[in-house]
Nucleic acid binder design. Structure first.
Lengths: 65, 65
DNA sequence: TCCATTTGTAAAGCACGCTTTACATTGCAT
DNA sequence: ATGCAATGTAAAGCGTGCTTTACAAATGGA
């Protein structure tokens, strides 16, 4: 599944480590999600959507890749 | 996380087995999700939302339970 | 160039999502 | 009361989501 995490993070001018801190996950998790190595849990998807002030559907694109 | 899966399934008058078939998952998975035994993967959440014609946020309530 | 920051990766380990098989319980129609 | 459909539950097994530790590569400012 594709996501706009990297794009959104860069727009906010923050590093992976900073975002990870805000999301309460490891930096490796943010990196893996940005690089599409795996999908986040539903819980984490909600946390990410909440952080960016968007819906899950606006950040994660199902049926993609 | 709470979900409205059972409510939505019953409104459609279908059994867990029938819903499971439509979602391409096992009946036990539908049962477990309805009973809140665990959260679905993000992929499955998208499939469920698509099936009911609702958004993930309309079906799954984060911060609940 | 040098150094610090950022990003990418790897491995081991634990918990969870989902499967299959199988059986017990509940509910309902006859 | 009997029987079948629907639901609940359990156990073993597999892949994935996420962690920690650790190191390598890339980026960029002075």
């Amino acid at each position: 599944m594709k996501s706009r995490i990297r794009e959104l993070r860069q727009l906010s001018g923050r590093s992976q480590a900073e975002l990870a801190e805000s999301l309460s996950v490891s930096r490796q998790t943010v990196n893996a999600l940005e690089r599409g190595r795996y999908d986040p849990s539903l819980q984490l998807a909600f946390i990410i959507a909440g952080y960016f002030g968007l819906t899950i559907e606006e950040i994660f694109l199902a049926n993609k890749e």
